[in-house]
Amino acid sequence: MLITKAQGKPVMDLATAETVGTVAACTVTPSPARIVGLRLRTRGRGHHTLEWTDVQSFGPDAVAVEEATRIRDEKTIDRGDHAHPAHDPVGKAILTESGVNKGTVTDIEFDERSGRIRQLLTDQEQIPGDELLGVGSYAVVVTASQ
């Protein structure tokens, strides 16, 4: 699935059958490259974060969570946490480890069961997930391929 396609999907609480928010973006860690958090748009201002491990299922029309109480306000997450919004790759520059800019991340193709990242997409190319080295506040770093 593409993250742009996942955006706007409702996140429903399995205990109450209520919508707790909609998918806005994700946070990513490398080795292996995977989604570790979903950034949600909730009622009111600011974003909330849902850990991938708390996602019960990522369906074609909605995301199900068992315990909606585990959804955290982004403001309470510190920088070192992998769910911190600094680890959202979309819109960031891609740098190879040799310091070459390869464009901007426009989309992420991921496996909706495991959260594993298949590809990072830019306007020009697709970069396999296993080339990902890090997602930080400034850039997405990938291995220098050949």
């Binding site: 480890e97 080295l133 890090g134 930080g136 506040s137 400034y138 850039a139 997405v140 770093v141």
Partner: peptide, 11 residues
């Protein structure tokens, strides 16, 4: 003026 960036992507 080139940014100094870590492999984790932080400047």
């Amino acid at each position: 003026k080139k940014p100094v960036v870590t492999l984790a992507g932080d400047d």
